[in-house]
Amino acid sequence: MAKIVFKHPESLKENIFHYCPGCGHSIVHRLVAEVIDEMGIRGITIGVPPAGCAVLAYNYFDVDMIEALHGRGPAMATAIKRCLPDRVVFSYQGDGDLAAIGIAESFHAANRGENFSVIFINNAVYGMTGGQMAPTTMLNQRSTTTPAGRKQSVDGYPVKVSEIFSRLDGAAYVERCAVSSPAGVNKTKKAIRKAFQCQLDGLGFSLVEVLSLCPTNWKLSSVDSCKYIDEVMSKVFPPGVYKDLTGKTGKTAEARP
């Protein structure tokens, strides 16, 4: 008998990703789906995809999903979780979605300690609209709207989401990871699992920031993009656990219909 060591996650539909080659979204989608499978929570999970590259996430995740307006995912997720407190609710947000147009909704959901999880993809650029400056674009980083590089005097500083959100009393778990290496991918998966567990334990707001690659808009190869995360991005956005109020043991999830 052959032993299955690798298979398509059940919580991921068979559709082919529309993401660019090398895009980090594909990796994180898979990680989220694997965690949902492993925790056995497919039937009770509701996802809220954003406006941005991941807007079509419902084509890939085989869980109930509702598309939010740009930046408003946390407002929607707040309401869904309040109405259905025994479900697992996550919003999936990009850097523009979370840290620019939706900063108020994200900040206040965290501050209220809303008991859902945010998967935050930080690739330091607006991907879907073609490579404009994101709130997390780094100083001197070029984008289509910072052709000479981001200048502090005009554009201000990159927003450090994990640092800021971990200071909010309502946040229970905040970790920044990177999917630029196999080790980083494993860490990210663990972090996502921990965030969902944090939610099942009713501890409050959880956020996993993922430094993710955007080779197309960075105009780098996939390999160079990974290097860019490790050598440049990680210096501005250091990975690590920024807040962790989760205990060592948690309730096990029961897949309820």
């Binding site: 497919r42 009770i44 995740f61 085989d62 869980v63 109930d64 259905l84 219909p257």
Partner: peptide, 9 residues
């Protein structure tokens, strides 16, 4: 939208 349960999402 209340979770797929055992059915289709």
């Amino acid at each position: 939208l209340r979770g797929a349960g055992g059915g289709k999402s």
